[in-house]
Simulated assay, not measured.
Amino acid sequence: MPQVESDLPPPPRDAWVAELERLLPQWESLRDSSQVIIPISISRVNQFDAARLDVEMSAMLKEQLVKVFSLMKPGLLFQYEPELDAFLEFLIWRFSIWVDKPTPGNALMNLRYRDERAAPISGKEVRTGLEGPGLSVSQKILYCISTVGGQYIWSRLQSFSAFRRWGDSEQRPIARRAWGLVQNAEGLYRGVSFCNLLLFLYGGRYKTIVERFLKARLVYASPNMNRAVSFEYMNRQLVWNEFSEMLLLLLPLLNSSSVKKFLLPFSKDKSAGSSGDEADCPICRSSPSIPFIAHPCQHRYCYYCLRTRCSASSSYRCARCNEVVVAIQRQGTS
């Protein structure tokens, strides 16, 4: 078979380089257009738990600080309670957010604050969607002013208005108008907070108004860390505390004599109810120095034990026979 030679000249040696330079801009534009913003889904429960843990941490610090001044004049710290709360909140902010560290609650929930304005949304620097710088200096200062300073000023304003009775002042229209402005501002803040809560539940960003205003978003500090905290021990402690409080409430309402008489048949040692101890007082278990007789059951008691029981209850029942005591009489007198 005869060979057919091509009439086309061979391509130059650097033809592939020219073709690469021609197609490279198209490839770069295609790659940039195919990049998708990585969505970040931060658990809303973790953010609420972190805020709650921060509140509990502040309460623990306040309790320890109050114990230091326990021997001082009573009611002294109550006058400076807003200053004390502001001081503790400032300490938490100073040693956490100001030094680019999470608050105690955020640390337990594996959360940190991120500057959402400077966070990358696409590009080579995006790997997990959790990248981004921390808060700037201006954001940190504004966060301290709005949270620590705002709460202090609002608490002081409320206490001052309540002490001056702005709401009851009818002779001073300026004070009453100021009281109305305070109430309207509080209502407006609660309404805006409720709207922000709805937005947070829908999108999962900016739990508070301050965070939304400053563009300070809570994101995970580490994508591999366990973000769930076990509350098993805390639940057991809460159950035991509630149970003990219920017992402390119910035990004083029970009649001790009736309980002892009810438990006496189940007791292994029944010598206390034997006839040999009939001469002893059934309340203090000792031989009465001044014996008194309870009527109509004729059982011996100490005067003090029987008198106090009958004075405390008009329908006191005998500790031995559970019969109502209607009268008392000293033994040996007619």
Rank of each mutant, 00 (worst) to 15 (best):
45 V>G: 12
39 P>I: 12
92 I>L: 02
60 M>D: 11
68 V>I: 15
49 D>F: 07
57 M>G: 06
39 P>S: 09
76 L>T: 08
46 N>R: 13
70 S>Y: 11
76 L>R: 09
49 D>S: 03
81 E>W: 03
43 S>I: 12
49 D>C: 04
49 D>Q: 08
60 M>P: 02
47 Q>E: 10
49 D>V: 06
50 A>S: 13
53 L>C: 04
43 S>V: 13
77 L>A: 02
68 V>M: 05
53 L>Y: 05
86 A>F: 03
53 L>V: 12
96 S>I: 01
41 S>V: 12
39 P>R: 08
37 I>V: 14
46 N>D: 14
71 L>I: 08
38 I>M: 06
41 S>R: 15
89 E>M: 05
66 V>C: 07
58 S>F: 06
80 Y>D: 02
98 W>N: 04
99 V>L: 04
47 Q>M: 11
87 F>A: 03
67 K>Q: 10
83 E>A: 08
48 F>P: 00
97 I>N: 00
85 D>R: 05
51 A>Y: 04
75 G>T: 07
40 I>W: 06
75 G>N: 08
90 F>R: 00
46 N>K: 10
57 M>C: 14
41 S>L: 14
92 I>T: 02
61 L>T: 14
55 V>L: 04
72 M>H: 12
86 A>H: 03
75 G>D: 08
63 E>M: 10
44 R>K: 15
45 V>C: 11
74 P>D: 10
90 F>H: 02
38 I>V: 10
58 S>L: 13
63 E>I: 12
46 N>C: 09
52 R>Q: 04
40 I>G: 02
40 I>D: 07
55 V>T: 08
98 W>V: 04
95 F>I: 02
72 M>C: 13
65 L>P: 08
78 F>D: 11
39 P>E: 10
56 E>N: 11
71 L>D: 14
64 Q>R: 15
37 I>R: 12
52 R>W: 01
69 F>R: 12
82 P>F: 05
42 I>N: 12
44 R>M: 15
94 R>H: 02
53 L>K: 02
40 I>E: 10
56 E>Y: 14
73 K>R: 09
47 Q>P: 02
59 A>V: 14
80 Y>F: 13
79 Q>Y: 10
61 L>S: 11
89 E>Y: 04
59 A>Y: 10
38 I>C: 05
86 A>M: 05
73 K>F: 09
49 D>W: 07
42 I>L: 10
85 D>V: 03
93 W>V: 06
46 N>T: 08
57 M>F: 15
59 A>T: 15
97 I>F: 00
63 E>Y: 12
41 S>M: 12
53 L>F: 05
94 R>T: 01
71 L>W: 14
69 F>N: 07
67 K>Y: 09
67 K>L: 11
56 E>W: 13
48 F>W: 09
67 K>T: 11
55 V>H: 02
91 L>K: 00
42 I>D: 09
87 F>K: 00
47 Q>K: 08
44 R>A: 14
74 P>N: 07
73 K>M: 08
88 L>R: 01
97 I>G: 00
83 E>T: 03
59 A>I: 15
66 V>F: 09
46 N>I: 04
66 V>S: 07
72 M>R: 11
74 P>F: 10
